[in-house]
Write a protein that binds this DNA or RNA. Structure first.
Lengths: 338, 338
DNA sequence: GTGAAAGCGCTAACAC
DNA sequence: GTGTTAGCGCTTTCAC
């Protein structure tokens, strides 16, 4: 599969009567080239439309200027916005993004990582699947010298840089908002057990109830998946409780949307009879009726911070692992008005 | 930035007492290797955890197993689903995906393409920005021998493979659905002028009205952008018309959602006083109230077909340019019931 | 400040 | 069916 041959560094060197080494140095702002030569080279390179061959660069220098992103889905607001943030930073620093989608399957995740050719990547940004546990395949990659930065769903056992929203504080604010608005029997439809994100949000919820001396009933805390359908199912379970809650704090907006849809089906008045608050600030919040109160997550910034951090790790050896926590913001809408 | 050195083809060859050529051939299912040797090599490679260096492979063979995707956004249902489809096929055929996001800016688009190192990519999948016109930078890439397949928003002037939904037929069905449901003054809030997609949907709309002898009033056809806010704005314009329409066919669901929100603000009863139908089948259709009728687009299949087509172009020289049109499907919901 | 040359890890033409 | 070897286009010592 030969493609048309582009101009190479040799062509530039030849037409200038200099060596390829000089061209290579000039192209990369290496400081042992005279100002004059550099300009000459740059001009000729652009005239000849010279683009360095990235494979050759990568082979010679052991760098690729590619960063990988591995995550469960891209088809939701949060993830696609994070990627957009990553892309923004990557583009500005000359990095490309290679996308790996796990479909939230641990098997797929491990298969991708086991088969990953690390020679392709300078670093990896990762959000693990909701079924992932030990994540030893990530550890393997890190041990082999490829930096990894985790975001959002992060594995507890692995020492690496991590970027996340302030889950416990956000959850605390969400629950307290419900309390301030007069709700007293507050339930929580949560995510899978064993996730930092899940536990932090559950803890924030518990803390708020404790602070205001409200009962924490374990039957009001339901753990299931992260999706809309899980939200619907969880509501039906809540409605079976002996004592019914009068408000729902959902671990994310998708589950909150599922909850609203289920409540509507049951003809339960949202707000008046049952307050609902989510987490994320998906655009659907202001489309659904009643509009959904939520904690806005800084999705775009999660992306930019993660990418910046990863690039630090790539460019500076022994850059220390960092944990960045970004604040969320309460957005009150109709679903929490009595 | 040296990273830990992985095992190379030499290591595998040495520990087996064969040549690197044999290992190389065995690894790639080249047929002039004995069954026995191949198995021996494969076993040793996996034992040594050998992963081929993609830069070296790319440099030697002029292939990268990377395909690029360039598109306006990834933060909406349609695009993220297309990418998921692309990813699916790419993964199964051993290709990686490199993502480029233009933020719907022609400038960004051309800048990305001008700076693109083609040595990085075996082929490109593209959906142009809503402001792109001549797209000569795509032509340049094609001329240099890199295959490009366009999807959804496709440039008219360029000869290349294209994949799209059946826009005119879908629009025809949408309009006819409104007619069947008793609407008589049907308006169309459309996208930017000059797009195949826009024109095809507008034509389908016109054809349906003509067939049923309904008036086509130019003031009922509004061209603007593709986003929700444009949908809202367009509705306010429609409501200024001397003779008001009784139904709206929106070029996509995002605009239809904007329209619904605007109508709600104006206390106009959706369905009864004003029918609304969209195009895409975004999940928001069944979340919004009333639920939005629409033409379901085969987004995932658009992705898989595009990727398959591109891989054909990559692997078979002189594979002829192809235009694939995938059918949509009417999904009737509440917003078109009187 | 610049050039010569080795070598990054692999593929493919050629020889046997 | 397998080995030898010349590159692929670039970076990077090491001379000068």
């Amino acid at each position: 599969m030969m493609r048309h041959q582009n101009t190479t560094i040799k062509d530039v060197a030849r037409s200038l009567g200099v060596s390829v080494a000089t061209v290579s140095r000039a192209m990369r702002d290496s400081y042992d080239v005279s100002q004059e030569t550099r300009e000459k080279v740059l001009r000729m390179a652009s005239k000849l439309n010279y683009k360095p061959n990235v494979n050759a660069q990568g082979l010679a220098s052991n760098q690729t200027y590619n960063i990988g992103i591995i995550l469960p889905f891209i088809t939701n607001y949060y993830f696609s916005t994070v990627i957009t943030g990553i892309q923004e930073v990557a583009w500005s620093k000359g990095y490309n993004i290679i996308l790996y989608v796990t479909d939230d399957s641990e098997e797929r995740e491990s298969s991708i990582l086991e088969n990953l050719s690390l020679s392709r990547l300078d670093g990896l940004l990762a959000c693990i699947s909701s079924h992932s546990r030990s994540c030893e395949y990530f550890q393997k990659i890190i041990d082999q010298g490829t930096p990894v930065v985790f975001f959002d769903r992060i594995p507890a056992m692995i020492k690496a840089s991590k970027v996340m929203q302030d889950d416990s504080n956000g959850a605390f604010e969400a629950a307290e908002h419900l309390i301030h608005n007069g709700y007293k029997r507050i339930s929580h439809i949560s995510g899978p057990i064993g996730f930092a994100l899940t536990e932090n949000r559950a803890n924030g919820y518990r803390d708020a109830l404790k602070k205001h001396n409200l009962p924490i009933r374990e039957e009001w805390i339901i753990h299931s998946g992260f999706s809309q359908i899980h939200g619907e199912q969880d509501v039906f379970k809540l409605l079976q409780c002996e004592q019914k809650p009068d408000a729902i704090f959902a671990v994310n907006d998708r589950k909150a949307v599922g909850a609203i849809l289920a409540l509507k089906k049951m003809k339960i008045k949202i707000g008046k009879e049952m307050g609902v608050i989510g987490f994320t600030n998906d655009p659907v919040c202001s489309i659904i009726s009643p509009q959904l109160s939520t904690i806005a997550e800084p999705a775009f910034e999660i992306g930019t911070k993660s990418a910046e951090l990863l690039i630090q790790h790539i460019t500076k050896k022994n850059f220390p692992a960092n944990e960045i926590v970004l604040p969320g913001k309460l957005i009150a809408r109709e679903s929490t008005v009595r």
